Simulated assay, not measured.
Amino acid sequence: MKRIVAYSIMAVLMACDDGDLQIETLDFDSVDPQTCETLVAEGTEPIVFFKINSDEALILELPATALLNEVATDVTSNVTAGGSTAITYRIFDDAVTKDYFCSQIPLGSPLLSEEIQAESGQVIITTTTTDSITYTHDIRLSAISLLTSANTRITDLSIDQFGIVTTTRSTE
């Protein structure tokens, strides 16, 4: 009887399937954020940054009021799919360049293979100044959770430092 129980337990354990679980990490640490236009703090248009790593891109969209020309510590925006603060991870079929994001006419290649929206997380911005005109914005990400089209979740806590950007106050 003990053998039957032992064999039954072994059979159950061997039959377990991990559901083809894939752990992905997003590696954009060594890439600086880019934007298509000159940064204007306290502007009226949403601010879009992107980081390109060969055939992948990480896109951060912030509301116009996210970068302020004033010293501020840990101003937090919550990330929501389709919200004013959004993070998108894109995979392309070939290497992508800044022209893909900044071209007036959409480029024919590379083609978008997959687009994954962040479902939750936080964007934390700390603003400092060295003079009365130039402001440095340290943008960090926290607890970013992405949901793929196959309803698998990528929660990558290794994404922390998005980058540092600078704005200048108008002297007019």
Rank of each mutant, 00 (worst) to 15 (best):
I133Y: 15
L39Q: 05
A150K: 15
A64M: 08
L107F: 01
I52Q: 02
D20P: 01
E172V: 12
S132T: 15
V96I: 15
F101I: 01
I52C: 06
R140P: 00
L112F: 05
V123G: 00
D160C: 03
I116D: 08
S142Y: 08
S103F: 06
Q117R: 05
D138V: 07
T130S: 14
H137T: 05
L58G: 06
Y135R: 05
F50D: 00
E114L: 14
L147H: 06
F28P: 03
I52P: 03
R140W: 00
P63Y: 11
A41D: 11
L107R: 09
L62Q: 07
F49Q: 09
T85A: 10
I91R: 15
V5Q: 11
T130D: 15
D94P: 02
A118D: 06
T167S: 15
C102G: 07
F101K: 01
Q22W: 10
T134C: 10
T167W: 01
V71P: 00
P63G: 10
L157R: 11
L111W: 02
G108F: 08
M14A: 13
A95F: 13
T171S: 15
E119M: 07
L157E: 09
T171G: 11
F49T: 08
S77C: 02
R90F: 04
A15S: 15
Y89V: 02
T167P: 07
I9S: 01
N69P: 07
N151C: 05
V75A: 11
T76M: 12
Y135F: 15
T166F: 13
L21E: 15
K98F: 04
V40E: 14
T80Q: 13
S170K: 09
E45Y: 12
M14T: 02
I116V: 15
I105L: 08
C16W: 05
S54Y: 14
I9H: 01
A72V: 14
R3N: 10
T73V: 13
L147A: 07
